[in-house]
Design a protein around this nucleic acid. Sequence first.
DNA 1: TTGAAAATATTGAATATTCAACAATTGAAG
DNA 2: CTTCAATTGTTGAATATTCAATATTTTCAA
Lengths: 147, 147
Amino acid sequence: MAKPSKENSPITEHLAYLLAQANREINRQLELRLSKEGVPVEQWRILKVLSDGNGHSMGELADAVLLNHPTLTKMIDRMVSDTLVYRVQDPNDRRKVLMFISDRGKVLSKKLNSLAVDQEEHILESYGDKSTSELKRLLESLIDSSN
Amino acid sequence: MAKPSKENSPITEHLAYLLAQANREINRQLELRLSKEGVPVEQWRILKVLSDGNGHSMGELADAVLLNHPTLTKMIDRMVSDTLVYRVQDPNDRRKVLMFISDRGKVLSKKLNSLAVDQEEHILESYGDKSTSELKRLLESLIDSSN
DNA sequence: TTGAAAATATTGAATATTCAACAATTGAAG
DNA sequence: CTTCAATTGTTGAATATTCAATATTTTCAA
């Protein structure tokens, strides 16, 4: 009897593929909601991180919002033009730039958050409370174990 | 006592964010392995799907490998240049193009699969057998419930 | 049977991302 | 101190992706 070889297993059984597929779908749904305000998902993330009111350096932000540095720089350029955020040179380390959220940014951030919460609630309904929290727990632990 | 509002919850608690983060990390690891053969993750997916030896239309492929049509067309153009795959007009529906894997593609696909299996095994080690299969189960069910 | 609508794939222009090089500042070793 | 390496952020060119428009074929209703 031939033992089932992982090499022949369909792509749909690979964790990497399942993650990509789930991420694509959930992201698509979130995108759809945020498009009501004409804002890409990454900008929601940026505003959300900055809405603690503190200054965050570009490097810190890039890590937090899952973008690499040049991409973030250019996205921030756009957001500065839209007066959603602003740059301040870090007085303690003048290599760094500290990003802050503006008042306009705060207003937008609130709207985006409620759209995002809408989605989470929609997931909770169709997918279930228990599965959702279990999935979150497992994802956190996967991320931890990868560092 | 103020009830904790989801709007103020950190971004790291959102399912959409956790999925994006996990996907990014796992994908990065896979990319690293596949780069040994100089092949992007999407091409591995394409070769894997085509390695059943059947012809697959572009639309079918695009769905399976999570790319939209124009992006797939251009990636396939490159793979045709590299003689990894080839196009055949579908005789039953001449709007369609059927993609097939070449012999060279099959050889490469084997190498890529073992690199991908390496990664899965590495995940199993650091993350655990049980967590992995449970996570896969939950992801599949999330994907199902989103359609 | 004909003609309009739908399905399929590709193209080219517009947009976005990435890579490598750069500039500025800080840290740290001698 | 001084100098050299490391850190931080940005830029420009190269690459990749996306959107809208197109061409071709099929479907289906009249």
